[in-house]
């Protein structure tokens, strides 16, 4: 038995896998830099069209997601409180319910779950749209109009998704608090105003900053990753599904990585 080819295959394939990942990450950075450069160099061009496209993106990603986000937020808030009451009753400490809500929802679950919903709902739509535009030569048509497609297509989506995610995370936090309050009020018979005051005391300025930073980074990440994979589709329509799948996986991974990083930076 020859051992060498086996090791060659293992090391070779793992090396290739790692390099592919690194290339993809470096490509993403490059794409981000190009987006930022484009946004600045074309800042005075086509502003009305850009504003309109951005508003459309906020509408699709933000306003149209509101229904889904609200429902999930109310349920998650209730869920956290139910578990909180179940566990905290054992140690006889229901007073920390507000702290639990603030820690679990405002700091972690709210931003992450909103990012997941936006990725699944809008991120995939962006990746598919860009994929089709690439395959059907629509991007070439836009280029032949003397328009930089990065400017017309990428920047409004980047800005729109980021703004929408920031707004949605705020909505998610507030609505899940409300859901949690209602459940707490129903189960524990604690006056809502008491819980409200507890929460106001439990939330810190850092929570606001962390929430905003996370929201901003998640918005940028989702838009950027989905646009990147959409533009990368190439010539074949069969490339669209795998690119969308990669976009979703990359969004999850990068968002979770940022979540851990920011939490570690601010709370450790």
């Amino acid at each position: 038995m020859q051992a060498k080819p086996y090791f060659e295959i293992v090391f070779g394939s793992s090396g290739r896998w790692l390099l592919n990942k690194l290339y993809r990450i470096s490509d993403l950075f490059g794409f981000f830099v190009v987006c930022v450069k484009t946004a600045f160099s074309y800042r005075k061009t086509g502003r009305r069209l850009m504003v309109r496209t951005t508003i459309q993106q906020i509408y699709f990603t933000g306003f149209e997601s509101l229904e889904l986000i609200s429902l999930i937020a109310l349920l998650v808030g209730g869920l956290v409180v139910i578990q909180g009451i179940a566990q905290l009753t054992r140690v006889g400490s229901r007073e920390v319910l507000a702290s639990l809500l603030s820690v679990v929802i405002i700091r972690e679950v709210g931003p992450l779950l909103t990012a997941v919903i936006v990725t699944l709902r809008s991120g995939t739509a962006i990746a598919i749209e860009m994929g089709y535009m690439t395959v059907l030569r629509e991007i070439e048509s836009i280029e032949m109009q003397g328009i930089n497609p990065m400017h017309l297509l990428a920047i409004p989506r980047l800005v729109g998704v980021t703004v929408a995610v920031v707004c949605l995370i705020l909505f998610f936090d507030v609505l899940s608090m409300f859901g949690g309050f209602v459940v707490a009020w129903a189960l524990v018979d604690v006056p809502l105003w008491t819980l409200f005051n507890d929460l106001a005391r439990a939330v810190t300025g850092t929570d606001f900053i962390v929430g905003s930073v996370k929201a901003f980074l998640f918005g940028v990440t989702i838009a950027l990753v989905c646009l990147y994979h959409g533009f990368k589709t190439g010539d074949a329509i069969t490339n669209i599904p795998p690119q969308v799948s990669r976009a979703v996986v990359d969004c999850f991974l990068i968002c979770i990585f940022f979540n851990v990083l920011i939490s570690a930076l601010f709370y450790l």
Binding site: T45, G46, R48, I142, Q145
Partner: peptide, 10 residues
């Protein structure tokens, strides 16, 4: 499209 983008008109 080209007009809307380049000419800054409504």
């Amino acid at each position: 499209l080209g007009l809307q983008y380049h000419e800054e008109i409504d």
